[in-house]
Design a protein around this nucleic acid. Structure first.
Length: 565
RNA sequence: UGGGGCGUCGUCAAGCGGUAAGACAACGGGUUUUGGUCUCGUCAUCGGGGGUUCGAAUCCUCCCGCCCCAGCCA
């Protein structure tokens, strides 16, 4: 990756976080309930990871590291309908990119299918599970309502022998999808609907992405997840709030197969970020309907999208640390994420000059054919990064926004008669404005002060404004992709009326401009990052070629000046 | 109206009976060859009521609000 950052990276691992989960773990260690800590990140391989997953990854791997334990990467692949190897690959890539290492601890719930099957057999033998021959509709009808108890399945009291035989036939493919199911025998009157004889196994004659046609019955989440945790010796099974109601079932199942000192499920609030959406389903929709350009579209909060956008793993980990871990539903301001990437990039990224909305400036008293090379600092934050040569000549591109025919209040930039500093070069004073027939300004003329070479003068005359520029004759033309939030509202999922979230897509979330930048073509390799001074941080896109350089804006610089008119 | 959770600054989030950390955002000052960075400063009495206590955001109680649960999804 970016070899330039090495030295100055602060070692963030020094700081250990604290939250209610850490408190629980501390207590478990103190009381002797646990001797070591094992966590896991258990994605279902049915989509790409997003920054919400990053929160969970940082939490799980972070906790393990903090206690000298280990964190497993386990694919929760119990539903062949939705899962695919494409996703197991991208997920591993993303976790690695984020900077985490699961070592040898890569697991698949599907590798436990045989063990899981045996657990089911054990439960049947002990009378805590039975094969139910009701149809899906009947099961649903019998489940009861929130306020009223359900009714027991007529098959609930089948003999162990019959259950065993039926379950075996299920496995052997002697039934069609939906004809039979394995259910836990709990309590149809349980106040929590989840505990009313939940389904444990269903029949699905469908190939599994890893197991092929080996199985035609697949365990449900509740059955597979807790047992997988138990098999792997997970101590703390961290998941999001929506599984809170499942915890009694999680524990009931562990009890059913007599697991001692089993894993403990602890729930925390999932991440919501303003001006974007986080659910896999919604992201999938945006991708499938071509509302964005693939899973790694730089506007998406996917890990691959953020990577392409120019975010660093360090900045995302820092973000995860800062948002904390708690149980209340929350919506984190996207500004915090942007703060994290600015803070990181500011430290080590080289500065360059680039003009995104060019206006030609002619320095009328500068020699036609002369070219000077000025030394410009690579990074004022880090003098050791040295300087570079920037070519200067009579014709320059400057930013159109740095010129106003009528200066607003407190305007420090170019306006009639005003003197500004061209960064690292000379002071120039605006003398003439050239317009076309329509009245549009097409060019401006300035004179420079030869005494101001390098950007300062002996008389210490005060020049408040400094603007960036690029020599027309030396500039490299690049395509620059500018991004704005994907949605126009903080929470596209929760708005008045029942509008679809897609109605809030920001039509200006992507704009493409042709810009001119310093002629340092050699630097322009994908993932190379820069700060274009006064504009923001940029990264070379993966689509960039030497013939056509493509740059993404990671994030703009903070802009405190807002002209009043 | 069943069950499970949650309510501390605009946004996150500490606090665990002793008199409200920190971060982001915002606003104001200083420095500055990036109106960037840096720096200094301003910015809450804890959903509401009642109670316990010398003392409560922290304990009790009632109320209000928000989130999750009736897939053979995870």
């Amino acid at each position: 990756m970016d070899e330039k950052k090495i030295d100055e990276k602060s070692e963030e691992e020094a700081k250990n976080s604290s939250n209610f989960i850490i408190d629980i773990i501390d207590g478990d260690l103190e009381s002797g309930k646990r001797e070591s800590i094992v966590t896991r990140f258990p994605p279902e391989p049915n989509g790409y990871l997003h920054i919400g997953h990053a929160k969970s990854i940082c939490l799980n791997f972070g906790v393990a590291k903090q206690y000298g334990g280990r964190c497993h990467l386990r694919f929760d692949d119990t539903n062949p309908e939705k899962e695919d190897t494409e996703y197991t690959n991208s997920i591993q890539e993303d976790v690695k990119w984020l900077g985490f290492d699961w070592g040898d601890n890569l697991y698949y719930a599907s590798d436990y299918f045989e063990k899981l099957y045996q657990f089911a057999v054990q439960m049947i033998k002990e009378g805590t599970a039975f094969v139910c021959s009701l149809s899906g509709d009947e099961v649903k009808k019998n489940r009861g309502t929130a306020t009223g108890a359900g009714v027991e399945s007529p098959y609930r009291n089948r003999s162990v022998e019959e259950n065993l035989e039926l379950f075996s036939k299920m496995r052997n493919g002697e039934f069609k999808d939906g004809e039979q199911m394995l259910r836990a025998k709990i309590d149809m009157a349980h106040p929590s609907v989840l505990l009313r004889d939940p389904v444990l196994y269903r029949i699905k004659h469908m190939d599994h992405h890893r197991k092929g046609s080996e199985w035609c019955i697949y365990p449900m989440y509740d059955f597979a997840h807790g047992f997988s945790d138990a098999i792997e010796g997970i101590t703390h099974s961290l998941c999001t709030l929506e599984f809170e109601a499942h915890r009694p079932l999680y524990n009931w199942l562990l009890d059913a197969i007599h697991i001692e000192k089993g894993p403990q499920q602890i729930e925390f609030a999932r991440l919501n970020l303003s001006y974007t959406v986080m659910s896999k389903r919604k992201l999938m929709q945006l991708v499938d309907e071509n509302l964005v350009n693939g899973w790694d579209d730089p506007r998406l909060p996917t890990i691959s999208g953020l990577r392409r956008r120019g975010y660093t793993p360090e900045s995302i980990r820092d973000f995860a640390d800062r948002i904390g871990v708690a149980k209340r539903d929350s919506m984190v301001d996207i500004a915090l994420l942007e703060h994290c990437i600015r803070e990181d990039l500011n430290r080590w990224v080289p500065r360059r000059m680039g003009v995104l909305n060019p206006l030609k400036m002619v320095v009328t008293n500068y020699n036609d054919s002369e070219v000077e090379y000025f030394d410009a600092m690579n990074n004022p934050e880090k003098e050791s990064d040295g300087t570079r040569k920037v070519p200067f000549s009579k014709e320059l591109w400057i930013e159109r926004d740095d010129f106003r025919e009528v200066a607003p209040r407190k305007w420090r930039r170019l306006a009639p008669g005003k003197e500004v500093r061209l960064r690292s070069a000379y002071y120039v004073t605006l003398t003439d404005i050239i317009k076309d027939e329509t009245g549009e300004v097409v060019e401006i003329h300035c004179t420079y002060d030869p005494e101001s070479k390098g950007g300062w003068t002996e008389d210490e005359r005060k020049v408040r404004g400094t603007i960036h520029w690029v020599s027309v004759a030396h500039a490299a033309e690049v395509e620059v992709r500018l991004y704005e939030p994907l949605f126009t509202v903080e929470n596209p999922l929760n708005t008045e009326e029942d509008k679809d979230f897609k109605e809030y897509i920001n039509p200006e979330s992507l704009s493409v401009v042709q810009g001119f930048v310093e002629p340092l073509i050699a630097e322009f390799k994908p993932e190379q990052r820069f700060q274009f001074e006064r504009l923001g941080y940029f990264v070379v896109d993966k689509e960039s070629t030497p013939e056509k350089i493509v740059i993404n804006r990671v994030v703009s610089l903070k802009e405190r000046f807002k002209p009043k008119n």
